[in-house]
Design a protein around this nucleic acid. Structure first.
Lengths: 334, 334
DNA sequence: TCCTGGCACTCGTGAAGTCAGAGTGCCAAG
DNA sequence: CTTGGCACTCTGACTTCACGAGTGCCAGGA
């Protein structure tokens, strides 16, 4: 049904349309790409591709443009991922290696991605729950107030202030450190509940009340509803593609302000082995129906770019992959 | 030179233009506002106002619009600040009071401001250097590695990891806490250098090497170049006023991505007693020449809104003032 | 001295009409 | 299955035109 030439025609349409932003007609297509067939033949193929829903034309006498379904096919079967030049690789590496701490890594990644792809870049901070505990410090702020400081292997530091119902002594705090520390060290926070479940029973009775308070905070705040953070950049690039958005940028900008939405886009892609692409309508978020997302996990978090469906998928996929890998390596090595 | 009626005409022009976004002509102006004079008279006044540079017309047969200079006069002398209704005040207060921690306060403020004003809102986190130290904790992560955790009275928690050239013992760390703690507690970080300058001399000789390392980190990272943070929101509102921007939103969005630029806009307004307004060309930042900024300090930081010069200054000023006051109170009381 | 009505003039806006070009679909022939 | 030919469609750019809002100026009146 879809023989090789038809696929080739689809690829040509996508590539031309992406680079020129103009509906592509049979004639220009036939001559620009060396298809070796006449425009009339291309027209027949186009008619079939349209019947199958891979392309449309905005109006009768205009060229064809890909549909979401067409882009999907292109991404899945037609685009060959561009390898980055070694110069590019080196540039990425050296740019990221200059980072001094986690915040810096994240910000540099955002900047890098948005510059490489000319799109909006989104980078999730390493998720707490998927990171390992390197250190849990309990600071005795006041007789009834503790500060928990959690440091993970990905360099993220998180703190919570904890108000206790009763008073605790320095000695209690010291003991708390001793019971929590060894059980959490080197563990993923996801596994913390299991590691801590027998704690109240094992601890000396005098310590139990305060211990259960601390335990519940650790579990609820750090494990069950950990605060996920996200950095975003390159929104100005949206104006670059303003023509690609049906009405205005408004709904897109609004969606980008919703952390939750972004997390959904980026955070659910945990898989650090392949790049995931969501195209237009595939996107569940209202307001991002005219955008595509290219995302990948880097280990304890995810990152990606967002832009109009008319984007350079091949290029963006390879950029996202490259950055994700470097970031993953960087954080794993730190 | 500018008698009362001419000022009244200017006010009318500004108000009409702000609300309708259409150049205002002599006739509609004369009848809509009860000026009690004929359109011809208004025309004469307009001619004079134009000669003085307060208004222009885009082309010969169009009405007048205010210039930056006109807005400036309007803001300085003509706009009477709207008092917020008590319902609005209550709404602001209850919205902000629901915040659970500093991050929440800042995010809620941004959201509140952008919704109240329909503009882009910017809120600076309480500046470290202008906050008081509530607690400085030194955590012994590893033999040659310390974690400094600083907690301020405005609820901000900042941490730095510190690699030492040599090894330190638990006991050393304990002593460090004792020398730093009392000297910093209740002090503003700005004053820290003075409070700490005699420290190396006063300390026991064995502690000096590590103490000077810690000291230099405290001074450089927390005092000299403290990491200022900023939250921003409501960028989608820019599209609401897209017509007001000469070409595209691009330069504005680009400027908004530069933390440094925003800090310059918001951070330099420390004065928590009055609202500062920068109009169009007054703005030093290239790319924000077509925008106005309404900002105010709230104590240890600043906040404000940014929008097209054609904005409701009176309304925005009162919103910014109200939010700044509530935030200031909230953080001072916390 | 200042206000007012009148009047000619300017100029942008929007409607309507025209036209060329790109592109299509279909058909019959190779 | 491919190809050239041909009639058809539709957009976008361009022009023209009339309208009307708005101005500037002037001369007369308070």
């Amino acid at each position: 049904m879809l023989d090789d030439r038809k696929l080739e025609v689809l690829r040509a349409i996508v590539e031309d349309f992406v680079s020129t932003n103009e509906p592509v007609g049979s004639k220009t297509l036939a001559e620009r790409h060396g298809l070796g067939v006449s425009p009339a033949t291309v027209r027949n193929d186009m008619a079939l591709l349209e019947e199958e829903g891979f392309i449309t034309h905005p109006h009768t006498s205009a060229g064809r443009i890909p549909t979401d379904k067409g882009y999907r096919l292109f991404v899945d079967r037609l685009s060959q991922v561009k390898a980055l030049s070694s110069a590019e690789k080196r540039a990425i590496q050296s740019f990221l290696e200059g980072a001094v701490d986690l915040d810096d890594v994240v910000h540099r990644s955002v900047r890098l991605l948005s510059q490489l792809t000319q799109q909006v870049a989104v980078v999730q901070y390493p998720s707490l729950s998927r990171s390992e505990v390197r250190h849990l410090e309990i600071v005795h702020l006041a007789p009834n107030r503790l500060l928990l400081v959690l440091i993970t292997d990905s360099g993220r530091v998180e703190q919570r202030v904890l108000e206790l119902p009763g008073l605790v002594s320095d000695d209690d705090v010291h003991q708390l450190r001793n019971v929590f520390g060894p059980r959490l060290h080197g563990r993923k926070l996801l596994d913390a509940p299991k590691a801590l479940e027998d704690l109240p029973d094992a601890a000396p009775p005098s310590l139990r009340p305060v211990l259960t308070s601390v335990l519940s905070v650790v579990l609820s705040a750090l494990v069950e509803k950990p605060e996920e953070r996200i950095a975003i950049g390159g929104t100005a690039n949206l104006t670059r593609h303003a023509l690609d958005f049906p009405q205005t940028l408004r709904p897109v900008l609004e969606a980008l302000e919703e952390q939750v939405v972004l997390l959904k886009l980026i955070g659910e892609v945990n898989d650090p082995t392949t790049v995931h692409v969501k195209i237009g309508e595939e996107n569940s978020v209202e307001g991002l129906r005219s955008t595509s997302v290219v995302a990948m996990g880097y280990g304890p978090g995810g990152l990606g770019v967002l832009g109009p469906t008319r984007m350079d998928y091949a290029g963006n996929i390879s950029s996202v992959r490259a950055v994700a890998r470097y970031v993953g390596d960087l954080l794993a090595g730190a």
